[in-house]
Amino acid sequence: MLMVCVLYTLVEILTRQLGGSLGGVDEISGYVMAITSSWGVSYALTERAHVRIDLVRERLVSKGRALLDAIAIMSLAATALVVAWRGWSVVAKTLSTGARANTPLETPLWIPQLLWWSGWLWFAISAVLLVVYVMLKLFVSDEDAIEEAVGMGGSE
C-alpha cells in the first residue's frame, strides 16, 4: 500500500516537473495507473471500500449478513484468481516475445506488467486468506469478526 503511495507521489512529481515538455509522460502515467489500480484494489479490499448494494443485506439478521459477506468474499476471491491467472498469460507473452512499448521510450513491457500483475496476485492472495478466515469464523458462528473483516465498509 505504501508502495503505491510512493509510486503515486513519484508520478505526481514527474508529471509536474516535466509538464508537457517531454514525450513519455502519458506512457508512464498509463503504467502508474495500471499498477496503482491493481495494488489499490487490495488496499480498498482491506479498507472494505468496494461498493456493494445493501438493499437486501440490511434487512437480514446477522447470520444472514455473515452468509452474504461470505458469498461476496468468495466471488471476489474467485474473480481475483481468474484475473491473476489470465493476467499471467499477458506477462508470459511479453516475456516470450521480449515486448517493448510501441513508443520512442521502448519501455521493456515486462517491468510495468510484472508490477501490475503482482498487484492482482496480491489481491487474489489477500482475498483467499480472507475466505479462509471467514470460513473459520463462520464455523464458530463469530458474526462480529466477519462483519469486522469483510462487512460493509464505511468512510475513514
Binding site: 507473452k93 511479453t94 516475445t97 515486448a99 517493448r100 510501441n102 513491457l109
Partner: peptide, 8 residues
Amino acid sequence: DYAVADSA
C-alpha cells in the same frame, strides 16, 4: 505497426 511492441 500496432503490433511492433511484440516484434521489433
